[in-house]
Design a protein around this nucleic acid. Structure first.
Lengths: 187, 187
DNA sequence: GTCTATAGCTGGATAGAC
DNA sequence: GTCTATCCAGCTATAGAC
């Protein structure tokens, strides 16, 4: 008796390997082997490797925001939630041994002609930017700011993305901790 | 009579293909073909594909900073130079059709065990951070800032990196233009 | 330096039997 | 759903002749 369906196991194994080894460097054969499913079964659920990639990104986005919500659930103050974003990143980067942002990795790796993948990566980034924007709107900004609300959201978003990239390259969470300090002085 | 040496042509072609198609997706065969050199000749100059990657990153770093210096040469004011960094990025991203940061791409693409490549990528990032820091030190900061000099350099660095990543994913220079505006309000 | 041939492997994908 | 066999293309790299 299988604990999980074939589809679930394929996607779970593929997700782990895509993130750890990269999409291009992960072969169908390895996925089949580690997921312990049949070759035909994989192609039954996912007609091509690209379809597997699509499912991977979409599931990753769903989980990413679900985990983020959960992580911030105990915090009530929007400002604390905004700063908590960086703690969330630190926690995830430590857990993945500084593997970097899943979505940015795909964006950097897939060929330019895979517009579908780019679209999905872009979707996650935009959604996260909106996430930041909404938290900012919930804050009562004490004083007139140097930056507009929109630009402030942009700034936090970019600092977050930049810090994640640097943390992955330097294999250290220092950049994200610095980013949090910068965010503290901005909001 | 060859206009350029075999080594130069190999590296030029490989550089173009690595950036446009990705390192993993570019085969030795294609490099040989487009560079119009013999198979044995490539392996004579570069014993393995990894050696070619090393030379690629190193040459790219040298050129990157040389082009940056040239781009900023006409500007005398350090603040204008700092803001010019973003114009430099915009210009490069437009020229490459939003291919993203060459070094970050490699960082996202190569397997984790290629420590050499990571080291080289990290080197470029650190050098650029120092570049920003030195420009900041040349500025006479008018008022006491909310952020220390070091943190300000960090912030500019991360915004720069984040904006580049977003520009590549969104295929638009809007993020970098926003980043410049943010930088203007910070310094 | 050039050329060709080829080893040895792995890639994604298909087909057929059960 | 499972299994195995296989196609064909591509990969990195080596060897040998010129």
């Amino acid at each position: 008796m299988k604990e999980s369906s074939a589809r679930t196991r394929i996607l779970d194994v593929a997700s782990r390997l895509f993130y750890e080894q990269g999409y291009n460097s992960t072969g169908i054969n390895q996925i089949i082997e580690e997921a312990e499913i049949a070759r035909g079964s994989l192609y039954n659920h996912f007609p091509s490797k690209r379809d597997l990639l699509t499912a991977y990104i979409q599931q990753a986005e769903d989980r990413w925001f679900a985990e983020l919500d959960k992580f911030l659930a105990t915090l009530k103050d929007p400002r604390q939630k905004l700063l908590g974003l960086f703690d969330f990143r630190i926690e995830r980067q430590l857990r993945s041994n500084f593997g970097g942002c899943l979505f940015s990795k795909i964006g950097a790796e897939v060929p330019k002609d895979d517009l579908n993948a780019f679209e999905l990566v872009y979707h996650q980034k935009e959604r996260f930017k909106i996430y930041i924007t909404e938290l900012l709107q919930q804050m009562k900004l004490s004083e007139p700011q140097a930056l507009s609300q929109e630009m402030l959201a942009n700034a936090l978003f970019m600092i977050f993305e930049g810090a994640t990239a640097i943390a992955s390259i330097s294999k250290s969470d220092q950049a994200i901790r610095d980013a949090k300090k910068i965010a503290e002085s901005l909001i």
